[in-house]
Amino acid sequence: MNFNNTAHETDSQQRSLGGNHDSQPSVNVTRRRFLAGTSAAGLAATASVTTMGGVVSADPNEHLLEIQGTGKRAGYSFAVDGNLEKTSGGGANINSNDTISENGASGEVGRVADAYTFDGDLLAFKLDGEANVLLDGEAAHVGRRPDYFLEIQGTGERASYSFAVEDNLEKSTGPVANINAADEIENQRGRGEVGAAADAYTFDGSLHAFDIRGVMRVLLNGAPARVGQRPDHVITFRGTGEPAHYDFTVDGNLTKTTAYGANINANDTISGNRARGEVGTGADSYTYTGGIPRFDLDGSADVLIDSVGTLRSQ
């Protein structure tokens, strides 16, 4: 069984890729405990909101987001769909660990707090550690929100993309994105195309891979996603009960991964751009760039590229 797929990359243009397989994130959260609301869109207009000893006023479209530390370091990132600013109101601090870019922010807290004001809705919030998160003085329920807001902005000329994520992938309109027939979601993989407009998605967990053909800007919670530094694709072997041996070569970089429930064991080996291993009842996964010029499978297994397009060989 042969796969033919070629690709190349230009960092100055994020990435320009060619190939026959489409692709999907990678951030590991070691501990997530959500202590703390209400959606920004569902808040009633009030004259003022008292919080952290301060008063936030007046405009019902402006909101205050507070991330209060509980003593141990906790990292966070989030995205909103309106104007975003850092604030020191109510005892919050501003330091070099806090950054704002586009429509998102990231930072960390320990014993003190960070605070931001913004317009519109809170689109996504990822918390790594333990913190108390308040939206206009009420619990923000960040554990019920998606981790990430992914925005794909066109630069004027048609460009296509595909990517694979860990979980709960959904289309979003965000601040300026649209939803059209060219955008598809299947088994935690998204794909589509942009021109002068933008596409957006929300998801949980990791961004496993991202494949671009053309030029575009890609943002993750408001910050550049650096998709040119991510692998193009994930290949997964799922055992069907009996041992199956595989051997394949890629024409780019190749790395073992635990994406899609895969494990790493002594039966799996990588030598340069060649991987060999076996699966029985579990799964093996690899991330790679470029194409797969050679592929052999001895036995029965399901082979997926970017979580879809199952191929069976016996």
Rank of each mutant, 00 (worst) to 15 (best):
6 T>A: 10
8 H>Y: 11
12 S>C: 05
13 Q>W: 08
14 Q>N: 09
19 G>A: 02
20 N>R: 08
24 Q>A: 14
27 V>S: 14
28 N>F: 12
35 L>I: 15
40 A>P: 01
42 G>L: 15
43 L>A: 07
47 A>R: 15
52 M>Q: 05
57 S>R: 15
59 D>F: 07
61 N>L: 14
74 A>P: 03
75 G>L: 11
77 S>G: 12
80 V>M: 04
83 N>Y: 12
85 E>A: 15
88 S>H: 08
94 I>T: 05
96 S>Q: 14
98 D>P: 01
99 T>H: 01
103 N>A: 15
116 Y>S: 02
122 L>V: 13
127 L>E: 09
131 A>K: 05
137 G>Q: 10
138 E>H: 12
140 A>E: 04
142 V>L: 10
143 G>E: 13
146 P>Y: 06
147 D>Q: 13
148 Y>R: 09
151 E>F: 10
151 E>C: 12
153 Q>W: 06
164 A>E: 01
166 E>G: 09
167 D>C: 07
171 K>Y: 06
179 I>R: 12
181 A>V: 11
181 A>W: 07
184 E>F: 14
186 E>H: 10
190 G>W: 01
195 G>Q: 08
201 Y>G: 01
205 G>L: 03
207 L>I: 02
217 R>K: 14
218 V>G: 04
219 L>G: 01
223 A>F: 15
223 A>W: 09
225 A>T: 04
231 P>V: 02
233 H>T: 05
237 F>T: 08
241 G>W: 00
245 H>N: 11
246 Y>F: 10
251 D>A: 03
256 K>D: 04
268 D>Y: 05
272 G>V: 13
272 G>L: 11
272 G>W: 11
273 N>V: 03
275 A>Y: 03
277 G>L: 00
280 G>I: 07
282 G>T: 01
283 A>K: 10
285 S>W: 02
286 Y>D: 01
292 I>G: 03
295 F>N: 04
303 V>P: 00
306 D>R: 01
306 D>V: 02
